[in-house]
């Protein structure tokens, strides 16, 4: 058995003329936490569906747990936990029943499913809602229930498609905490996200995808090191002046990105550059020095921002 739990070579998915995933290659190691970062429509979810063995690839090679999804789909799925982008909980059933019935799909006996459901309700901090209906649960609770459901079969690998989209900051942090615990227990996590902070929080390694292709690959720190500077100075002069001022300070820092609302100056010492700009008499209305992030990496690679 190879070391990789997922191996994709020139993986391609086409819908008629539209190429959703355009010949991507990557590997994921057992126990690794692997993130697909990219904007909406980049092909992340389609890649995820092929890994989840529910969408047949158009061409290329793909093995999951050393099995071919086109041949052994159900066998692969027996080892996966899937958290889809949109919750698809069963509204006709109560919270605990959602877990029980799901466990049955993996062949668990009723007693086993019941025991596991209680453990996972505890894990998902939903024990007190066991007999509630699904509908009144908050977005964060529904998400945690979906994650609990995906763990009913004690999966070797958990696939999370945009796990925290639409959740408030507190709910996101609770969810990240739960996912981090799974990571610590050795569960392989594969997640897609268009949030850079989420990718940084949860992923050991990231591939940046755009328009169905991989733009870059590495750990968050490596990507930032390779494609960005240590710091970023953000200055604002008002939307009508940003472009003209940018031309006058083009030699400051290593590189510039002019966005409609601000100028980003990539530099190893933001404070020093801010002092230089001010010395030249270009006083910004607001300024900010921050660490480089994956957002900057994405901007550098694609010329676009992640959330548009």
């Amino acid at each position: 058995m190879s070391h990789s739990v997922i191996r994709a070579v020139n993986l391609t998915k086409k819908y008629d003329d539209f190429v959703a995933v355009d010949g991507i290659s990557f590997e994921v190691a057992r126990g690794e936490s692997f993130g697909l970062l990219g904007p909406n429509g980049a092909g992340k979810s389609t890649t995820m569906k092929m890994i989840a063995s529910v969408s047949t690839r158009t061409s290329g090679e793909l093995t999951v747990l050393d099995l071919d999804p086109n041949v052994d789909g159900p066998a692969i799925r027996s080892q996966l936990g899937v958290v889809p982008q949109e919750d698809n909980l069963d509204g006709e059933l109560r919270v605990r029943e959602n877990l029980l019935t799901y466990g049955r799909f993996f062949g668990l006996s009723r007693a086993e499913a019941g025991k596991r459901a209680d453990e996972l309700l505890e894990f998902a901090q939903l024990s007190d809602r066991a007999n509630s209906k699904v509908e009144p649960l908050s977005g964060g609770m529904k998400r945690r229930l979906t994650i609990a459901r995906s763990l009913m079969n004690d999966p070797q690998m958990l696939l999370l498609d945009e796990p925290t989209t639409g959740l408030d900051p507190q709910a996101r942090h609770i969810l990240w905490d739960r996912l981090f615990r799974l990571k610590e227990q050795g569960t392989t996590l594969v997640l897609t996200t268009h949030y850079m902070d989420e990718a940084e929080q949860l992923s050991d390694r990231i591939v940046v995808v755009d328009k169905g292709q991989i733009m870059a690959e590495g750990s968050p720190a490596e990507l930032i090191r390779t494609y960005s500077t240590r710091e970023v100075l953000e200055v604002r002069y008002g939307s009508d002046k940003n472009v003209s001022v940018a031309a006058l300070i083009a030699d400051v820092g290593e590189r510039q990105e002019v966005l409609p609302d601000r100028i980003l100056i990539y530099s190893d010492n933001g404070e020093q550059d801010l002092a230089e700009i001010t010395r030249r008499g270009h006083h910004p209305t607001t300024s900010l020095v921050r660490r480089s992030s994956l957002e900057d990496v994405f901007l550098r690679l694609t010329g676009r921002s992640l959330v548009e």
Partner: peptide, 14 residues
């Protein structure tokens, strides 16, 4: 709407 068939298909069920 409730997409329950997709939820079931994510398991071993065909």
């Amino acid at each position: 709407w409730h997409k329950i068939f997709f939820a079931i298909h994510a398991t071993t069920v065909t």
